[in-house]
Design a protein around this nucleic acid. Structure first.
Length: 777
DNA sequence: AGCACGCCGACT
DNA sequence: GTCGGCGTGCTC
């Protein structure tokens, strides 16, 4: 057999790359008890396979005790793969003669603790994901290859003997050098450079000067030994907490040391972040670690800045924009107990934390906490599960909690901590409906809204206009023959964009030049119907010629730094009218804005997804929350042709809580989450009939299994074509599974999902199973 | 997922 | 006559 039959994608790094042992030698060589004992190593292999694979221990004496959580290099098929040791057993179900031997142990110590493994195994089972895939999506990507972990030594500085004895006063002319030397002297084991940078800012020049004088030297710190630094020099004193904030802090601190879930239900501006900071301070002071999960790190720059500014310990940030090395470095700092705070997106929920004492999930309602492909887990739900397994509190924070979370709070499963007041004296924005039926519109604005805008602008205030539609016009049509620009690959219209000028499909990314004549009849009267943000901006300029206008959407902020530039111009008051899509609803505050106009959400009121009303209400409240900070109250005007719509009425009269009551009532009647639990099988193929045929077979399979799985009450709905049947050239369909009881649904899925894998598939057909789906598209 | 083995069309 | 299509099955 050829000896270097490594898998092509696997990097062959010298240290671990031995020749593949001849297979016949492996098979013929019976393990003797003295060299391997009875031990069978049960290994999760980095492949989409649900089962564990059994191996014999490596021939050479293992450099470490074989412990679950170690990565192993194992012969697999005719190549070799990275796997993770999960269990050590004394028996195997396999023919013992077929067992192969582990080639090598890749790590000096387990990368994941038994508790970490338990969470990942639980998640793999719950979301029906092969264990190997789940494990290796939880690890930094580089560790999927047989690469050794990065050098764990931490670069730092240390005072030299001269530095320890010199009189500090001698440096009074160089106060920064003096202060840094004092810090170094206080830490005889050394200071990590990363911590120094985080707490003192950029001090490279000062360190160079100290090193030139022979007072400090560089060194390496062993993990686990870096002392925490005093609070940063720039630390701001925290503002005093109001009574609600204090009560929330007290309730959560009182729960430390055991599992309890809390909903921190705080309107925008009520000071949730300050509550988070106080909690983390307390956890760090007690020697623990805190984990904060956020939807998208790019949207929470303020949160991150405030954490780093206020909290002493090293903060490890984890998100997709980091390069692989930084990511792994931060992951190790968390895993080794170095970082006292981890702030990250979805996958951070799996990061090992030996002293984990508190988990926070900010914007817990946000759909991006649920991974939408591959391993479709909910970081929020796993955070709760992890807190349960760890025995620590978890706090779900939002101004617009998910209905599932509110339901849990109402049932008293979660502690419900309310922060109804805005910090300071600011009042919440008032929302009013503006009936635009039969109203003449200019630039999509009714005369009432235009007058309101003029009043605010004249008073020196800023105005925000929200229009959730990018581009110039959503439809280009021929007035003569009725041709409409459609996407050749999707069941969708092409959106007209003028900058850059093209017809663009927002669903698959396809684009084409804008025709000057009708492609169907060669007519010249092509008309642009409807209004997107580009057109709104164009139409506003003549209406408000003296006024600075900025558009914020994915197109206008594509260039790096452009978003920050626009936001800077807004905060400096150079912009008076700010318009854009839902990018405006997330993360950024506009204290100078006193009027928010919501131009057209009517289409969302009648969307097919059962979560559309919830998402719409959240969007409205989140947009409203951007306005009217400080002493100037904000006002929200919502233009609509459906002023009587129950969603709008309940939101208007009783706020988000009132809306939630109505919406939960509807969910109960319709037997939808949180009153029932769902799983969705999606299938897609180049032809329209194949996905439906596959799902019909899946349904037949399911009907036969419901009894075998002892899962009465599991209902199947469909298959039906997806709401947009054709997308990116593929036809899509779905089959919904519904059950009133989560454990029954799970029992059913445990039988069904392995059986689904055995169904025959036509060529080009892809399918996936989504447990607790968020989007029904 | 890879990567083999295995049985039917157009080619050096 | 072969090279090669992707259907099917296996990986301890």
């Amino acid at each position: 057999m050829q000896s270097n039959a490594g898998r092509p994608g696997a990097r062959q790094s010298g240290r671990i790359d031995g020749p593949v042992v001849d297979r016949s030698a492996l098979v013929s060589r019976a393990p003797t008890p003295s060299e391997s004992g009875p031990a069978i190593l049960r290994v999760a292999v980095a492949a989409p396979l649900a089962e564990l694979f059994d191996y014999l221990p490596p021939v050479s004496p293992a450099p470490v005790t074989l412990t679950p959580g170690l990565r192993l290099l194992v012969p697999f098929g005719r190549g070799r793969r990275v796997g993770m040791l999960l269990r050590i057993a004394s028996h195997t179900e396999q023919d013992p003669a077929r067992l192969k031997r582990v080639e090598s142990v890749l790590d000096a110590r387990p990368l994941l603790s038994p508790a970490d493994l338990r969470l990942i195994e639980w998640a793999a089972a719950y979301y029906r994901q092969p264990i190997g895939e789940a494990l290796f999506t939880a690890l930094p990507a580089r560790l999927r290859d047989p690469a050794p972990v990065l050098d764990e030594r931490i670069p730092g500085i240390q005072a030299t003997p001269a530095g320890l004895t010199v009189a500090l006063d001698a440096l009074n002319r160089a106060p920064r050098q003096r202060d840094l030397l004092a810090l170094a002297r206080a830490a005889p084991a050394g200071l990590a450079l990363a911590d120094l940078r985080a707490s003192q800012g950029d001090c490279a020049a000062t360190l160079r000067a100290l090193r030139a004088k022979g007072l400090i030297e560089t060194c390496h710190l062993a993990p686990g030994l870096t002392p925490s630094l005093p609070p940063p020099v720039s630390a701001l004193a925290g503002p005093a907490l109001n009574a609600d904030q204090q009560a929330a802090v007290n309730a959560i601190l009182g729960a430390l040391g055991g599992f309890r879930a809390f909903l921190l239900d705080g309107v925008t501006g009520s000071g949730k972040t300050e509550v988070y900071i106080r909690l983390i301070e307390a956890v760090i002071a007690a020697g623990g670690q805190a984990l904060v999960v956020v939807p998208e790190i790019g949207l929470t720059p303020q949160l991150r800045a405030r954490f780093i500014q206020r909290l002493p310990g090293p903060v490890a940030v984890l998100h997709s924009a980091l390069n692989a090395r930084e990511r792994e470095r931060n992951w190790h700092r968390a895993a080794l107990g170095e970082a006292t705070l981890v702030l990250g997106t979805r996958s951070a929920v799996f990061v090992p934390l030996p002293r984990l004492a508190l988990i926070l999930v900010d914007e817990e309602h946000d759909a991006s906490l649920k991974q939408q492909e591959g391993f479709r887990y909910s970081a929020r739900d796993l955070a709760v599960r992890r807190a349960q397994l760890t025995g620590c509190p978890v706090v779900l924070g939002s101004a617009t909690p998910a209905l599932e979370t509110l339901h849990n709070a109402r049932l008293d499963r979660y502690g419900w901590l309310k922060l109804p007041e805005r910090a300071g004296l600011a009042r919440p924005p008032t929302i009013s409906l503006l009936d635009i039926r039969d109203q003449p519109l200019q630039a999509g604005l009714s005369s009432v809204l235009r007058a309101d805008m003029r009043t605010e602008l004249a008073a020196g205030n800023q105005v925000l206009l929200f229009l959730n539609r990018r581009g110039y016009a959503p439809i280009l049509t021929c007035h003569a023959c009725g041709w409409v620009g459609g996407c050749p690959h999707c069941d969708a219209r092409l959106t007209l964009h003028l900058n850059p000028r093209k017809l663009w499909c927002h669903h698959c990314g396809w684009s084409q030049p804008v025709p000057s004549l009708c492609p169907a009849c060669q007519g010249s009267d092509l008309r642009r119907l409807g209004q997107g943000t580009e057109r709104l901006e164009d139409n506003l300029r003549p209406l408000f010629p003296e006024v600075g206008i900025a558009r914020i959407d994915r197109d206008s902020t594509r260039r790096k730094g452009e978003l920050d530039r626009l936001l800077g111009a807004v905060s400096r008051g150079e912009i008076q009218i700010l318009l854009g899509t839902q990018m405006l609803a997330k993360g950024h505050d506009f204290p100078g804005v006193t009027l928010v106009g919501i131009l057209d959400l009517d289409h969302a009121l009648y969307a097919s997804d059962f979560r559309a009303p919830e998402r719409t209400a959240q969007l409205i409240v989140q947009v409203a929350g951007r306005a009217g900070r400080a002493e100037r109250p904000g006002r929200v005007v919502l233009q609509t042709r459906h002023p009587e719509h129950p969603l709008l009425q309940s939101l208007l009269r009783e706020g988000y809580g009132g809306f939630a009551t109505v919406a939960l009532g509807e969910r109960r009647d319709a037997e939808l989450p949180p009153f029932a639990h769902l799983a969705l099988v999606r299938a897609e193929a180049p032809g329209a009939s194949e996905p439906l045929a596959f799902l019909r077979a899946a349904r037949v399979l399911a009907e036969g299994l419901i009894e075998a799985a002892d899962a009465p009450g599991v209902h199947l709905l469909g298959p039906i074509p997806a709401p947009m049947e054709r997308r990116a050239g593929r036809y899509r369909a779905q089959l919904l599974v519904q059950c009133g009881e989560r454990s029954r649904l799970q029992r059913f899925l445990a039988h069904w999902s392995p059986a689904l894998r055995g169904l025959s598939r036509t060529k080009g057909l892809r399918w996936s199973l989504d447990v607790d789906p968020q989007e029904m598209l």
